[in-house]
Simulated assay, not measured.
Amino acid sequence: MAKVDVDLVKMVMTRTGLDVRTVAQIIEEINLELKAQEDEDEKPPPVKKQFVMMVSDPEGKLEGLDLVGWVLQIPEEDSVYVAEERLFRCAYEHNLSKKGRRMPVKTIAEVCEHVPARIAKEQKIWIKNKEPVYMLRTSNKVPMETKEGDF
């Protein structure tokens, strides 16, 4: 829908010979509708989000451990075991660059935080978060309701 200036509408209506009171009433209605639309258009502020990794642990082997890690992506047809090697190659490539010679990366955390996405993309790995995130363990079972209504 085209946006038209209210003053232009007022000028056209007075030019067509409408009564001044009628024009004022119509302009007032238009202003009320514009204000109502502006109120509807206001969006709530976006919710801040964080990454979490959830690991299935049905045997409970990870219970009591606080683990952190990074969320990575690799091509679907590749083995997941190549991810670490690709991060190593990202570190090597970065350390060969001018910036890498000044500030070389020595740990996986530094690779995820400081290596540019361009280098990671060349190695076919995408780092989804620069800072490590907590890994949550789950038993991988959804509790079912019992007859008494308890879980």
Score class of each variant (00 low, 15 high):
W70V: 10
R137T: 13
A36S: 12
F88I: 09
R102K: 10
V111T: 10
M13I: 08
L87Y: 09
K128A: 07
L62V: 06
A117H: 11
T146M: 13
E76S: 07
V9T: 04
E42G: 10
H114G: 02
V47M: 08
P46V: 00
E113V: 09
K141Y: 15
K106L: 08
R118V: 13
K35W: 03
Y81K: 03
G60L: 09
Y81P: 00
A91V: 00
P58K: 01
K35V: 05
K43N: 04
K141S: 11
E38S: 07
G17S: 04
T16H: 11
E131T: 10
E28C: 06
I74L: 11
Q25P: 00
H94Q: 03
P104F: 09
I27H: 02
G69F: 02
I30R: 03
F151T: 09
G17L: 06
K43G: 00
L96K: 15
V12K: 08
K49Y: 11
K43H: 04
M13D: 09
M54Q: 15
K10D: 03
Y92D: 11
T22E: 12
K130R: 15
G64V: 05
V55N: 02
Q37V: 01
E76W: 09
E122M: 08
K3Y: 13
R86W: 01
D41P: 04
I27Y: 00
P75N: 09
L65F: 15
V52C: 01
V82C: 06
I26T: 08
N31I: 03
K128N: 08
P44G: 02
E85M: 14
L18W: 14
V82I: 10
K43A: 05
A83T: 01
K128S: 06
P143W: 01
